[in-house]
Write a protein that binds this DNA or RNA. Sequence first.
DNA 1: AGGCAATTGTTTGCCTCCAAACTATCTTAT
DNA 2: ATAAGATAGTTTGGAGGCAAACAATTGCCT
Lengths: 165, 165
Amino acid sequence: MTEHEPGYKTRTARQSAGPSETGDVNLGLLGGYIGYHLRLAQNASFRAFQSKSGRADLRPGWFAVLNLIGDNPGITPIALSRAAGRDKSTLTPILRDLTEYDYVVSKPRPGDRRSYGLSLTELGRERLGELAAHAKAHDRVLDEIAGKQKEDFIRILKRIAEELA
Amino acid sequence: MTEHEPGYKTRTARQSAGPSETGDVNLGLLGGYIGYHLRLAQNASFRAFQSKSGRADLRPGWFAVLNLIGDNPGITPIALSRAAGRDKSTLTPILRDLTEYDYVVSKPRPGDRRSYGLSLTELGRERLGELAAHAKAHDRVLDEIAGKQKEDFIRILKRIAEELA
DNA sequence: AGGCAATTGTTTGCCTCCAAACTATCTTAT
DNA sequence: ATAAGATAGTTTGGAGGCAAACAATTGCCT
């Protein structure tokens, strides 16, 4: 898309004209849509968290998974995927990495040879601790923003996730 | 609210038919994190919207872009990327597609040969209308969930996006 | 038993996105 | 005027995600 006619070569210009300026973009109907703001907020939150935990073995995507395994020893990948809100196929490489790093171990499930149960290793508990420190600091900022409406705020988020499932 | 026994529940999957069943997974600390619920809600909202507008030329990612161009004729890609909360490089292929579909045209900007201004075609306005119908129906559900707290809810989302930028 | 449907986890293919590197152009300083 | 820096847009590379297709196993039904 670099095919614009030579056109004019006015040099006066001053970026005076309009709506292309940074701040004064007209959002129109968009400004009233919950979905739009939801995406911007989630995006900002994710980036902020990601930028803090820079290590290769402390990826933000691992936090929820480690947390859930820690709180539910013996959990299966499928239960994990539902709780973490991720597709089961998304979990496969994550669990492979977590196992390679020795943060997680899987044991066969008596009574069902298709599946296996997951639990944290001691090392995994350590890493979870580090991630939790990041997460806590991160969520403290969000808590401040939400203020005393935090409970209401989370309640609405929960209902959105439930009712649109 | 989120305080359950961390015990080892060696339950062997009774797993009734309910697919919406989140299951008896213990969320632990995760249940109190705003970031976690934010991601789940955004994810659910996005999927729900996507599943409704199934056409190839009505992708959900286009909605915000078409809307912003429509409300800000002559806007540049960079201003657009900021308003839409996407990286400028993300916009390049989107704008290429929108131009190929003849929903958008770009005109050279007098005074700056690096850039160009975007605006909708008549066809683009039509498609925007269709997308807007979907979006309105979608957001009506979200509005219902938020109820009379919608304004507060959006305010918090906005602040999250701003302060974590 | 035997057969058929459902479930588990993996593989494969595709899409969206960001960040860094790059080119072209504009601006500012000297 | 020229050099140095800032800015606009594109390209490239990699991460992360979903969904459909698949194999293995389990459960159900007759």
